[in-house]
């Protein structure tokens, strides 16, 4: 039995989310979606956990603070300057450097984390991708066994899909 891809497009975000919920309840094949906007409804319907990019931002932030401490404390000990017997380490200015580096590395980790986790840059387009999905249509691409195709198609149509087409021989993601 071969796997096929069924590509459907929706004009309405709510209908698309509803179709996703039905697909999940029916447990037929696996699917991915395309949307022109980041949709909370779709994200909620898919029901995945929160993105791990937040841990990368946290790791970046912590490494920024540690880098800040290392360069400020390290260079102070490298060149000990006795300023009227005051303590060697000047914490208030060091906090500024640590804060700036926390933001800098947190942001850099976040940005490159998104690229890495989202699989960009890439030259390969996901099966079923269509330019209109960036413009004004919400798309669901379902990969399922050929025997289940008719059932999936009718589910998608009943949920309000404008268009449902088959793309035979598509590779699973």
């Amino acid at each position: 039995m071969s796997t096929i891809a069924i590509i459907s497009s929706f004009a309405d975000e709510t209908q698309c989310a509803q179709a996703i919920e039905e697909l999940r309840a029916a447990q037929v094949g696996d699917f991915n979606t395309f949307s022109p906007i980041p949709s909370h409804k779709i994200e909620h319907a898919i029901g995945r956990s929160k993105s791990p990019v937040r841990w990368l931002v946290l790791a970046g932030g912590i490494s920024g603070v540690l880098t800040g401490l290392a360069i400020t404390i390290g260079t102070t000990y490298e060149w000990r300057l006795n300023a009227g017997g005051r303590p060697l380490l000047s914490w208030p200015p060091f906090i500024i450097i640590c804060f700036e580096l926390m933001v800098l590395l947190g942001g850099i980790f976040g940005f490159f984390g998104v690229l890495m986790l989202s699989g960009v840059p890439t030259t390969a387009m996901a099966p079923g991708y269509n330019g209109r999905f960036g413009e004004d249509r919400f798309g669901i691409v379902v990969r399922c066994e050929e025997a289940e195709a008719a059932r999936v198609e009718s589910m998608l149509k009943e949920s309000g899909a404008e268009e449902v087409v088959r793309e035979d021989g598509a590779q699973p993601r």
Binding site: F34, R48, G119, Y129
Partner: peptide, 21 residues
Amino acid sequence: AMGWQGTDRQWRHYSMAYLLM
């Protein structure tokens, strides 16, 4: 565009990172 396609996977990470940034 670096191959951006607006998949659910991409938006999921994008929205979280945008909020944190």
